[in-house]
Design a protein around this nucleic acid. Sequence first.
DNA 1: GTAGGGTTAG
Length: 617
Amino acid sequence: MNKKVPSSSGFHSKSLSGVSSIQSETPSSESLVWVGVCWTEVLYLQDLLQRCARKRAAKEGKVCHGRTIQAGLQTDTLTSNILINMYSKCGLVDFARWVFDRMPERSLVSWNTMISSHTRHGEEEEALDLFMQMQREGITPPSEFALSSILCACAAKSAVFECQQLHAFALKNEMVSNVFVGTAVLDVYAKCYLIKDACRIFDRMPDRSAVTWSSMVAGYVQNDLYEEALMLFHRAQIIGLEQTQFTLSAALCACASLAALIEGNQVHAVSIKTGFGSNLFVAASLIDMYAKCGSIEEAYFVFSSVKEKNVVLLNAMISGFSKHARSLEAMILFEKMQQMGISPNEVTYVSVLSACSHMGLVRKGQRYFDLMIREHNVYPNILHYSCLVDILGRAGMTHEAHDLIERLPFDATASMWGSLLASCRIHGNLEVAEVAAKHLFEIEPDNAGNHILLSNIYAEKKRWVEVARARKLLKDNGVKKEMGMSWIEVKGKVHKFVVGEGNHPQIAEIFAKLEDLAAEMMKLGYKAEIEHDLHDVEEDRKEELLRHHSEKLALTFGLIESPPCAPIRIKKNLRICGDCHSFMKFASRITGRKIIVRDTNRFHHFSDGSCSCGDFW
DNA sequence: GTAGGGTTAG
């Protein structure tokens, strides 16, 4: 504070209760050289502003701002810095910038605070511009504060090149050992899928904070390294670090992706023990984890236990119901959320529309699609259109679905054409199928599934010449079908099975049990649906290939290894084929077990010979 | 007076 301010004529000391007016006392700090202004009152105002920042009290903050002007403090750097911070914390970044732009003299803190304010509010470009301006004006070198803020902007923009430059700068200036800078660099690398670089930084950091640990756990999750994420989470537990809501939600996300229910249960226990069980982020992750691990009841239990619900929590629950073919519950919750005064957003509508698609509810789906724009001002994105294409196609309205794709306001995705092709397979529409396949072969030439689907449609129509052509095309292009894989968690360990698996230590036992099971099923009428196999081999071989689909191997392993009445939960990397679907139905009847299969699209709950999807999937 | 991390979507 190096400017003399005018007299305190406009200063309403009376309004500041409990503060006596002490004129021009000797200041305790060099920065408080005041002429005619009570410095204790200045301190009081600054303290008030900081309290407003902590309480996110924008209205009171604005009143305080008015008082600082009345006190003639508009030229004071320290007060302005506090004002910028207050406005930033209250979410009024424009007001913060207004103060910043009018400062006659800015300190390093002014720049740092303003840059972080822009970053915090998702204005990465403004943050970067300001950072560059800072360099141009010779306010160098940037401090650790500016560096960590600007790295945060890089993370949001996936600006890996800028991050590398800043990292080099930090190394040169020995700033990388600063825990804020180190963590921010680590986070950007992880978000830019340079997980090895992120790991290297983590390993070399002299000090790690709770944020460093949670950034690394989340980094692994963002890079689909779920097992590594859980290992790091456990490492933190072992060395006695307190888990935070951040590590907990990231670890739960890993469990959800792995379909690791037992592991997820353990993380749930830690969440309760640490008092984060009702944190909205943790609770939403818990709901999602339970739903994705096949336990919709436990997901609902968590949902019910949270008193103050938000839109993400509701979306997680609605999405869970939708995936588990519980469309009625999804729709009831959709109505309830509005009664609670929470508006559905675009995520809600994706789940509600996909619930309609899973259940074949055409009219309901179309009604939701209209409602979305009309009532809630939510404009349909590519996922909403995808759902609608799926709803129409599955219901046999393949021409309507095709028309919709042709009228889209953007380019149709492979998933849309794929959905249409699959619908054509169900409803035998060869004409539209050929159009869909043509687009798919262009968009994703390496996807063998599309060739197989088209060939199946030809085979059904007994168009053998075209079947042969499709097979030749598949062979000539060297297109490989994505290897089918299934995972099952037994005794807390996730076991992976690949189609035709031969290396599992218990494979002989699994094959023997599988044969017994199939023999028993055949007595009840099961017949291998060999049309689901498109290998160019004899029928016997086809049957064997089908028999060794990964989900069948995982099921048999589960039957051998788990307690007699325990449900069997399987996760698969592709959509379940018709033969495996039928196999699971028979298996649930013979063994009396509940079998829950999560494929890339949804859940199938098999019980006593039938499936929750009602054979519509 | 200023800095870094987490949730829901066919």
